[in-house]
Nucleic acid binder design. Structure first.
Lengths: 138, 138
DNA sequence: CACAAGTAGTTCACACATCAACCAGTCGTG
DNA sequence: CACGACTGGTTGATGTGTGAACTACTTGTG
């Protein structure tokens, strides 16, 4: 847990200072940039990220205000919205991604052997399976 | 990372619903309850928890409002404060601790072999060492 | 002793997260 | 087709976290 805290704090900070993106920003943009047309329905984004809908809505509002994404109306479902990544958002994520990947290597992957990594994923799978049993949603 | 997210979300929620404490509350009270007299200077608490001073100050204000801790004036340093755990705070942490420990066993420790745990601490130590080199404070 | 530099703590402004309440549109079934 | 239940999404209140600016006291050095 101490490792995880220190690691994510470090990666957050690097991302923020070098790319001007928070980790939530990065996650949203990463999914949008991979989607067809750079467009996704909020509920799809929510499913991909495992985010609550209100969290997503609030975060998208902040990102919209900064010009990273835009909202469009959905034609096939009058309730719905569509989120588009803006050119500016795409430029930022494309600049940030390689730096971020390099940081992950530099702080984590390069210091762990293949067996250690395998053990780690084994642990992760077992614990997530257990949590899945306890908590019906996940 | 997915495991860590799911695990801490689950443990947070258990702690909150079963004991009425957030994880930050728990951490603060755990340190206070172990200190001599249940008293600590904020800066000591901050060092133990690796928290920023403003975060600590704000959190203590919220906890004070709920009657979990109290602030006293420090006699030897006129700037300083002293944080005391209240009887109510002590009662809560003492009720919460065994439940929390049981949850950790139930969701994590019991599903991991001794070797896996050892590998995990090895990884943690290596990564934290690496982060310590990169980031002068920690 | 005087003053510069550091330390202890608070506060303000803001980003991020949860929950509950709410609107509006869709859909299944009588 | 009508109506109740569900779904997609927003909003408001509150708790949690960071950074910068500020107050007030302490300490080191001339």
């Amino acid at each position: 847990m101490a490792m995880q805290d220190a690691l994510s704090e470090y990666l957050d900070r690097q991302l923020r200072t070098r790319s001007g993106l928070s980790t939530p920003d990065y996650q949203v943009l990463a999914h949008l940039s991979e989607a067809a047309d750079g467009r996704l329905r909020p509920f799809e984004l929510g499913r991909l990220l495992h985010w609550e809908k209100s969290r997503l809505s609030q975060h998208l509002s902040r990102m919209e205000k900064r010009g990273l994404v835009a909202r469009e109306r959905c034609l096939t479902d009058q309730r719905g919205a569509i989120i588009v990544i803006t050119p500016q958002g795409r430029a930022l994520i494309e600049a940030a991604a390689p730096l971020h990947v390099a940081e992950v290597r530099n702080t984590f992957i390069d210091h762990v052997t293949a067996e250690e990594l395998e053990t780690l994923t084994t642990i992760g799978d077992k614990v997530r399976k257990r949590l899945g049993e306890l908590d019906p949603d996940d």
